[in-house]
Nucleic acid binder design. Sequence first.
DNA 1: CTGTTAGCGCATTCAT
DNA 2: ATGAATGCGCTAACAG
Lengths: 330, 330
Amino acid sequence: MAMIAEKAGVARTTVSVILNGRYRERGISEKTAQRVRSLAEAMSFVPSETARSLSRRRSGMIGVILPGFNSAWGESIITGIRSRLHKMQTHVPLIAAAHDDDDWEEREIKLLIERGVEAIVCCATVRAENHRRIVERGVPFVFVGHRAKGIPDASYAAWDGTRVAAAATRHLIGKGRRRIAFLGSAATNPAGSEQYQGHRQALMEAKRELRPEWRIDVPRNSDDGGMMRAVFSAAERPDALISDSWQQALHAIEELDARGLSVPEDVSLLALGDAPICRHGRIQLSAVVEPAEQIGGMAAEIALKLIADPSRRPIQQLVADYSIIDRATT
Amino acid sequence: MAMIAEKAGVARTTVSVILNGRYRERGISEKTAQRVRSLAEAMSFVPSETARSLSRRRSGMIGVILPGFNSAWGESIITGIRSRLHKMQTHVPLIAAAHDDDDWEEREIKLLIERGVEAIVCCATVRAENHRRIVERGVPFVFVGHRAKGIPDASYAAWDGTRVAAAATRHLIGKGRRRIAFLGSAATNPAGSEQYQGHRQALMEAKRELRPEWRIDVPRNSDDGGMMRAVFSAAERPDALISDSWQQALHAIEELDARGLSVPEDVSLLALGDAPICRHGRIQLSAVVEPAEQIGGMAAEIALKLIADPSRRPIQQLVADYSIIDRATT
DNA sequence: CTGTTAGCGCATTCAT
DNA sequence: ATGAATGCGCTAACAG
């Protein structure tokens, strides 16, 4: 910057102020601004965000914790976050992934903090202890997509699992199904239990049968169909199945196919959440789709508010929007 | 750090040196080191990487450009990169995504540079002009997964498209197929043309027929089956198809199904690249699997070497490893 | 509109 | 073993 200042015949401050856009309020002429800018361009000068961050005592970064780098859902969430941040011109996402692994999670969070993120937006599960430490450091923390069980007063922008699951169940009831099971993974899906509650409510309101064994819970990352086998080989088996994710629903299709049960004639199948693969001709999985991008944007906005006023109470927003796409499995 | 130094009764320098591990060579006793460390822990002190970066004039970050956040391939690549970097303890990935969009790409690269990454590892396509600018700035650039066409002397760790495609073609020939088509997207797959060359070579070596119209090129992000329709409704249609990606292969399955052609009886189908969904019972797509994680690790290593010695000539490594998984489509 | 001054939080000589 | 001094590249307060 000193070189540019010299060449342009102005003070370093002037260059600094022009290059970071705050020159208007300092009454610097558009002419000199233009001159300095083109000089900087010609010297292919790139301001050091590191030095800026240190001086401003703000990094201009927001940490984003994704479940991994291979989820359509995560991609939508982050698209929402980015487009919102991009509009604000002020914060940029630093991305980490938890990979469903506690050690990774801890290291990644540590990294984010060391790099000075001003807030953390988290699409993954996170240990209550880690969350507490972050909040104690004064770094705003926002859950996105779901609220964390066990951390009641955390900020979030989440899909309303209860209402969405209830809507899904009602949808199947409307299609004449009577014995509706719920398939989910408590370990993997933090919203699982509230979704089940919604399912249950809808069932009770419609005076449909609700059997505890029709809540099928698969352990983390497992595609073993043991429980499904038991449920679907019983004399009075369910005639419909709601799954907490398209992944689980895909496993269910395999199980059902293997048992010779036809979808949707014998068992109607509806997933909470959608992905491109669900549209495939051989799958055609019906799904309740989540406005993930919108939710991502909301989370970013919450983070920005919390950064602007750290003393603020947690901000919690629930989104009940959804749309049901009937493909071939319902 | 000043507070810690005061409480511990030592100089600020001492604290600094202890906290960043370089205290041994300064002859500081393990005892004081321990004391300072536990004091820091108790005060929940986190060193500012921003300040460190500024002072050391090294950010300790490597930029990684992913095609997006929803690809099994990208996830494996980055896993490889991370595990290698993690071993080295010295560099941490800052992740960006190109999203197949030129404007995004340019902005993301600018961001990485401003944040001071010491090298860029890129799994996506990148405009030659952007690449040139980065290299001119002195930032090492490594392609991973494929080499960039049009940028001959760039560093890379890539899958050997020619040999892999040749192997795939030979595999199909070995299964008795005679008329083998090649499906790919030139716009999306940077390795597409060398893969086609490999395919072609294998065909010629085996003295099999090679028709230009059996090279089916679909435009970017398109799943429209126009060209496939034409090829497969001809009197003498191919009896096998190699696809440059599992995504395209999935589209092919749909097209084939729609035309009443059975897979693999009428048409055998083999994809270059694998993903979890390919294992699904209703898909069972045969695939040639890429050692993506290994390639990611190699790319990281190249980046590290280039950082250590910037005057070094480009490092280019080709990996010909693969394994063919015969599922139900071959 | 310009220039001077004083840091931001650390790492790194160099002298002790 | 220690500590004072200097600087990384930039921003910001303030006096011109």
